[in-house]
Design a protein around this nucleic acid. Structure first.
Lengths: 335, 335
DNA sequence: GTGAAAGCGCTAACAC
DNA sequence: GTGTTAGCGCTTTCAC
């Protein structure tokens, strides 16, 4: 198990030059079938694995796309990543994932790390970055796709939804249904700009109709069903006259739903519920939860395709600078 | 936005040699405070981002750990990845994630890709690989940590649980509780070796007691709550006398639970349910589901630490070759 | 404390 | 169809 075999070793064993071996292994240029065979056999025999570090340096390009998301445990992002992977699967580009933990400083570090690998493009969640990160991205001279959130100005290109709009839409529906004592349940507010924007949109729409939230409750941790249930209990004890609850995420809302099911509350007569995301999980529940469907997979798919498109045609088509995808608000059984 | 600045540019602007600039930027060697300052200022001014491709080639080492999992959408793996990230966060090593889609051929391709980046170590799920993949891994001459599944022989080191044991344990408990007409609900059987091993363990334990599964149902797709509900309905219509259902995953079992809740079945009197994984999600449900708790985060944590440890001390301590973690079977309300 | 020379393993560009 | 030359951007080594 001595030293790892290099292209030189393969070339020597095959009795050809390094260049020829390189051509065969990469499948480029014209090489006779006979030499092809010799090189391939030699490579197999040695268990040769090309060194992309060297290859990347020589060709001054690596087929990487950097992808940075706030969290990987949040059910939302794995679907976005899947969209990205699927879109890149047919190309020679490869995604590399990094996580920022909803922390702008950490995001900056991750961006720097990623950039140091000289990727072909970068996809990252959100429009908010540190000043230094912003500068690095602008200077990188590669396609930058900011995803998920389109309420603001992208550095380069933006693919996502309007979270403000999502909040407004839900507020309007809730008011149309006649609810008047509305409570809000959220987590991770200071960390999650998108949840904040939904809440802002929600509140502003209420205000337009001379209404406001009757009560709000926040918890600074990861969303979970259990947390949603506990917060619902606390909030309803504190404000028993609430007739509708808007949650910052489906996971929390499912917790509320579970609470209602066990405590015998009738939905939506005793209390109405609404979440956000449109998680697949909702399909399996006994009651269909009102929510806003977000095309997560589609966002990932488009972001990756945008990078692919830019590789072909480096002149940015300005009209597509901002791709605002449709969201659909579902009333379902709980509103 | 011309050419990306290189170390040379930084050195020139700072009026020092490339070598000195390199030392400052990496924080190694003795450099006077005055030159340090000059270099740092120059780097900042140019927006210099080091080229790790070049650095890696020169130093013949990159601080990467390759991590390959079958899926990122399965709720299990994000937690493993989080454990890995957390363990590596304090080190200078960085994880790179790849996905095999429960496909051995694709896994082989991903392993090859990963290895071509010359990582310091590799963490991958399962003990089953193609012959070619096996060879590449053996030849790589770096720590190989196979995680999740410890029923078999690792290439190098193995950290996980015995899925066979998990199946056996659950079968024993179910029999102890007096259930006699047992059904099984599973997905993705041919693709998921670990689910297979659980089922084997489960069946063999039944056989030990002269029992066998009364009915089984499989579906070849991603697990989901909705799928679990639908399959439960189908199975119970087909075999109405079943008194207990064992699911290949919690997600499916939750679907069964939802079905029972809506159709007014009493648990565990009408039907008992058991899942596998111990997902956090279960904490929020109205009924506590019987399940096997798997220390997913811990597995990731240990795998990463094993690689860190090997960097310090390259002589493999053979006694730790196999780290079998404890699993706990929870009876809860549904058994 | 700093610098000069050499080279990591590969590929672009050109010659033959 | 194949080989030669040069060099990617950085770090190692050794000299001063």
């Amino acid at each position: 198990m001595g030293q790892k075999p290099t292209l030189k070793n393969v070339a020597q064993l095959a009795g050809v030059s390094e260049m020829t071996a390189s051509r065969v292994l990469r499948g480029v240029g014209d090489v006779s079938d006979r030499t092809k065979e010799k090189v391939k056999t030699a490579a197999r025999e040695l268990g040769y694995v090309p060194n992309r570090i060297a290859g990347g340096l020589a060709s001054r390009s690596v087929n990487l796309v950097a992808v940075i998301v706030p969290s990987i445990r949040n059910y939302v992002f794995p679907e976005v990543l899947t969209g990205i992977s699927d879109a890149l699967a047919e190309s020679e580009l490869q995604p590399v994932f990094g996580v920022s933990n909803y922390d702008l400083e950490q995001e900056e570090r991750v961006i720097n790390d990623m950039l140091s690998w000289q990727p072909q493009g970068i996809i990252l969640a959100g429009l908010h970055h540190t000043e230094a990160a912003q500068k690095m991205l602008e200077a990188a001279n590669i396609p930058i796709i900011e995803i998920m959130d389109c309420d603001g100005d992208p550095i380069d290109m933006c693919i996502g939804i309007s979270h403000r709009q999502a909040g407004q839409d839900m507020a309007r529906l809730i008011m149309e249904r006649g609810y008047r004592k509305i409570g809000f349940v959220g987590t991770q507010m200071p960390l999650d700009f998108r949840a904040q924007k939904r809440l802002e949109g929600f509140k502003s729409e209420l205000a337009q109709n001379d209404m406001q939230l009757s009560d709000e409750i926040y918890y600074d941790a990861r969303s979970s069903i259990a947390k949603g249930r506990d917060m619902t209990v606390t909030l309803m004890e504190r404000s028993p006259d609430l007739d509708c609850l808007y949650y910052s995420s489906d996971l929390l809302a499912v917790g509320g739903l579970m609470h209602c099911m066990t405590s015998g509350l009738s939905i939506p007569d005793d209390i109405a519920l609404a979440g956000f995301n449109g998680l697949d999980m909702l399909d399996g529940l006994p009651t269909r939860l009102a929510t806003t469907h977000v095309p997560r997979y589609e966002i990932g798919l488009r972001a990756a395709k945008a990078i692919l498109a830019r590789k072909e045609n480096p002149d940015m088509p300005l009209k597509d600078k901002m791709q605002l995808l449709d969201i659909s608000t579902e009333m379902a059984d709980t509103l």
